[in-house]
Each structure stands twice: as C-alpha cells, then as structure tokens.
C-alpha cells in the first residue's frame, strides 16, 4: 500500500476557452513526502488542485490519488485526502465549532473531543463559539486547516495557505504546516513564494503559465541557483562597476546603484578595495536569495524557459 503514490498525475491538461490553464502537467508525490507546487499567480497551481479535488474535470491526462481515480471511484477518490483550495469558505452565520461539527457530519461525524483537539492544533480554542462571519482572514485560514485535519487525512493538500496573512500569521501558518509535515503526513503545498517552499518542502514542481519548468528536489535546485546578489550604493558607482568587473563579479547597473553577483569572499574583497580606492560605501544589501533569483529567472514572462542555461527541468522519477 505504501508504495502507491500519493499523487500521480500524467499529462494533465485543462483549458478555459483559448487559455491553457494547466498544460500537460505530470508530477508524482510519494507517500510521506512534503511536496511543493510553486509558481507565480496564474501559473495553474489552483487549477491543478481543483482537478485533484474533483471540482473541475481535466480535458486530458490521468490522475491517481492514493491509487484511486475520479472516473472509477467517484467521491471515494478523496478517501484519505483533505485540504482546501484558495481561501477556505464556511457558513458565516454559524460558529466555528458548528461549522466543524457539520462538516465532520459529512464524513461520518466526529466527537466533541476530536473537534476540541483540532481546534487546539490550530490555536482557535476560545474563539470556537464566535460566528465565522466575525473571524479574521487568518482565523478562517486556520479553521480551514482544522476542518481538513478532522478527516484524518493521509494526504493534506494546501493551496497557498499563507496567502493574504500578515507576517505573524505567515510565520504561524508555516510553523503549523511544518509540524504537520513532521508528523508523517504527506503534504502537497502550493505557493508563489520560493522561501516558503524552500523552508517546508523536500521536492518541488515549478510551474509557469500552466507548464512545468522545473521538477526535482530542492537540494538539486539549490545547486543550480546563481550566486547571491548584492546591491551596492557608493559615491562613485561608475568606478565601482569597473572594479567589480575586474574582480570577475557579474555586474548589473541599476537606476540607482549596482547589483553585483558572485561568491561571498569576492564581494568582501570588493568592499575592501572600494574603500582603499577612496570610494565610500553608502549601502550594501542582499538582494533576493539565490533560489528566489532562480525562481524568477524560471518563471518571469520575459525569460525563455527553454534557453540552454535555464533548461534544468529534472528528469521525471
């Protein structure tokens, strides 16, 4: 049983009119994995997850969820699967607890103590008697996780769970997902944030306008990432750029200042050299992380994902 893939999608395609929202997507998630589906807004992450939950029908391709398919098993395809799509929605006129109780009823029911337990897990104890209409966005998001946990899933599917949260909310949500992932659950997490996926996931599929542009482990991705870039502002950016190029750093002129990319020791040496040359350093800041830089290169519309230096789509397992 455990050698059955949690998710096995092959050639999944969904079009809306002339727009191909998901274009021949193939991905495999093994049981126990913590898997990220990463892509900018509009990449097709939600469309893929809607197909997984049977909310929309693929136009082509096959999809097995814990070995089951929608065509063959109907709603049983979701046995052992829980999660939510975009922001979870509840009945605003009912309390948090009542919503959970009713949703559990659709799964055969859950005892009071089990509901207390999941409320505890997502830190909503004390607010469960308030109507959901009065909940903050973050509370609804956490209630969505609670509602999913009530199903005792083997596969937890979360579609950008930290989206729209404030920084504290993001931190808490990530901590919660990490804990759940640590408990042996298979997690399929979608995100537009490389840092989030890097922090939580082992493997990742990166999508851009419906198509896969990378597929493999985070570790392998990290190896392909460019060096860390720094932004520097000096009293003489012209000369600073010349010195940086001479030091074999990759230099980009910005509207204001320079971006230099290269190994840390070389950056350090450049800074010392600038001072020695009488050029004052006004500001030195890290730009996006190397993985983020790679993510932008892979997914930004003006880059060609087929360009040789970026053609890093990993082989399917």
């Amino acid at each position: 049983m455990s050698d059955v893939l949690a998710v096995d999608a092959v050639g999944l395609t969904k079009t809306y009119g002339t727009l191909t929202a998901v274009d021949r997507l193939s991905l495999q998630v093994g049981q126990g994995e913590v898997y990220g589906v990463l892509g900018p807004n509009g990449a097709g992450k939600t469309t893929f997850l809607r197909m997984l939950f049977g909310l929309i029908r693929p136009d082509a391709g096959t999809l097995h969820i814990l070995g089951r398919t929608w065509d063959e098993h109907g709603i049983r395809a979701l046995d052992g699967v829980a999660g939510f799509i975009e922001s979870p929605k509840f009945y605003p006129g009912l309390t948090g607890r009542k919503n959970l109780q009713l949703l559990a009823g659709l799964d055969g029911g859950a005892g009071r103590s089990r509901i207390d337990e999941v409320l505890e897990t997502v830190d909503l104890r004390g607010r469960e008697r308030d109507k959901v209409g009065g909940y903050s966005f973050g509370m609804r998001q956490r209630l969505g996780v609670a509602a999913s946990l009530l199903r005792d899933p083997r596969l937890l599917v979360l579609d950008e769970p930290a989206n729209g949260l404030d920084p504290a909310g993001i931190r808490d949500m990530r901590a919660l997902v990490k804990r759940l992932a640590g408990s042996g659950l298979t997690v399929l997490l979608s995100s537009h944030d490389m840092a989030e996926v890097e922090e939580i996931c082992d493997d990742v599929t990166i999508m851009r306008t419906g198509a896969v542009v990378y597929h493999g482990s985070i570790a392998a991705l990290r190896a392909k990432a460019p060096e860390q870039a720094h932004e520097i502002h000096t009293t003489d950016d012209e000369r600073a750029a010349l010195l940086a190029r001479a030091a074999e750093l990759e230099v980009t002129r910005l509207d204001d200042g320079l971006a230099v990319r290269g190994p840390q020791p070389q950056i350090d040496a450049l800074v010392a050299q600038l001072i020695g040359e009488g050029i004052a350093l006004r500001r030195l800041t890290r730009r996006e992380t190397p993985l983020e830089a790679l993510f932008f290169m892979l997914t930004e519309p003006d880059t060609d994902p087929a360009a040789p230096e970026l053609a890093i789509t990993g082989a399917a397992r």
Binding site: L156, L176, R179
Partner: peptide
Amino acid sequence: MTITATTTPQPTATAPDKRRPG
C-alpha cells in the same frame, strides 16, 4: 501566539462497520 500540533493524524482505516456517509 503559538501553534502546537498535538494531533498525530492517523491513516484513514474506515472501519468496515462504519457506514459511509451518503
């Protein structure tokens, strides 16, 4: 605020005597 994951999700083994919701 702290979040604690006190639940260890159990694999779903739908007991045979438990009727499927319909």
